[in-house]
C-alpha cells in the first residue's frame, strides 16, 4: 500500500490538481445533475480509484509489467473532463443565482468571472508546462541540437558513402544521433544512460566514467569495437593523444573533436 501511495504522490508531486479533481468529483456527486454524469464521472471513477489502491491489483500488475508504469491505471479516471464539467456547472450555478440581481450587467458576466477564478486556481495549483527545463527553443525542424546534426553530416561526408558507420559519441549526444541518421551506429547509446538497466560498455567506461580520458585505453576499446570515428568534447581533458594510436584528428567542430581511424575497414 505504501508503494501505491508513493506512486500517487509522485503523480501529483507537490501540486493541487488531484485535490481539484477530488473537489470536482464531490461537487458532481452533491449536485446530482443527471444520472449519466453522477455515475460515469462520479461513481465509476471512484471504483477505478479503489481498484488502483487495491494491493492485489498492484501485485498482479507488477508481475505483468513492473511497478514503474502502474500510474497509467490512473489515466482511466477522467480527471480533465470532470474538472472542466464541474467548473461549467459552477458557472451555471452562479449565473442562475445572479440572474435576478443582474440589471444592466452583461449576461455572461458570471460565467466569465467563475471561469476566470477556475483558470487562476488551476494555474496556481498546477505547473506551467513550458517552464519545464527539458523544453528549449528548437534549433531546427527536427528539434535536435544543431551540433549533433553538423557532426553527423561531417562524419557521413568522411565515410566514403558508407551507410554502416561505427562511431562513438559523447553521452550528451547519444540520444540524438540516431534520431537524425541511422547510417551511424553507436558504440554505446541510451542504454548506458539508464543506470538501473545495468549495462556495461568498455568504450563508455573509458570515455565517460573517468575525469581524464586515458588515450591509450580509449583507443584500445575503440579498436576492439571497430569504431572508425570518435567524437570527443574538446573541453574534456585527455592524457595522451589518440593520434598515437591510429586516430587522426580531422576537425574541431562546434566544440568537439572528430577523429577517424583509416585502418578500420568500412563495413
Amino acid at each position: 500500500m505504501r508503494e501505491i501511495l508513493s506512486i500517487l504522490q509522485l503523480y501529483n508531486a507537490d501540486r493541487w490538481l488531484l485535490l481539484f479533481y477530488a473537489a470536482a468529483l464531490l461537487f458532481l456527486l452533491w449536485k446530482r445533475k443527471d444520472t449519466k454524469s453522477v455515475v460515469l464521472l462520479g461513481i465509476f471513477p471512484l471504483v477505478i480509484f479503489a481498484f488502483f489502491l487495491f494491493p492485489v491489483s498492484f501485485t498482479i500488475y507488477r508481475k505483468l509489467d513492473g511497478p514503474e508504469t502502474y500510474y497509467r491505471l490512473a489515466w482511466m479516471m477522467p480527471m480533465t473532463a470532470t474538472i472542466a464539467y464541474a467548473s461549467v456547472l459552477l458557472a451555471q450555478q452562479a449565473e442562475k443565482t445572479a440572474k435576478e440581481g443582474r440589471g444592466k450587467r452583461f449576461e455572461g458576466t458570471e460565467t466569465i468571472l467563475v471561469l476566470l477564478v477556475c483558470v487562476i486556481l488551476i494555474a496556481s495549483g498546477g505547473r506551467y508546462t513550458y517552464n519545464n527545463i527539458h523544453i528549449t527553443p528548437a534549433e531546427n525542424r527536427l528539434h535536435l541540437p544543431q551540433t549533433v546534426i553538423n557532426l553527423c553530416d561531417y562524419i557521413e561526408s568522411q565515410a566514403d558513402g558508407s551507410r554502416n558507420i561505427q562511431a562513438a559519441f559523447p553521452s550528451e549526444h547519444v540520444h540524438y544521433v540516431r534520431q537524425y541518421t541511422t547510417h551511424i551506429r553507436l558504440s554505446f547509446g541510451r542504454e548506458m544512460m539508464v543506470e538501473r538497466w545495468g549495462f556495461e560498455n568498455p568504450v563508455y567506461a573509458e570515455m565517460e566514467e573517468k575525469e581524464t580520458i586515458d588515450a591509450e585505453k580509449l583507443a584500445e576499446a575503440l579498436l576492439a569495437d571497430e569504431c572508425r570515428f570518435v567524437v570527443l568534447n574538446a573541453a574534456k581533458p585527455i592524457d595522451g593523444a589518440l593520434e598515437e594510436y591510429g586516430y587522426e584528428k580531422l576537425v574541431l567542430l562546434d566544440g568537439y573533436y572528430v577523429y577517424k581511424n583509416e585502418d578500420i575497414p568500412i563495413a
Binding site: 480533465t80 488551476i122 508546462t129
Partner: peptide, 13 residues
C-alpha cells in the same frame, strides 16, 4: 477553456 488550461498547467509530474 478549462480543458486547455488543464493541458497548459498539467505538468505537475
Amino acid at each position: 477553456v478549462i480543458v486547455m488550461t488543464l493541458i497548459l498547467f498539467g505538468n505537475t509530474s
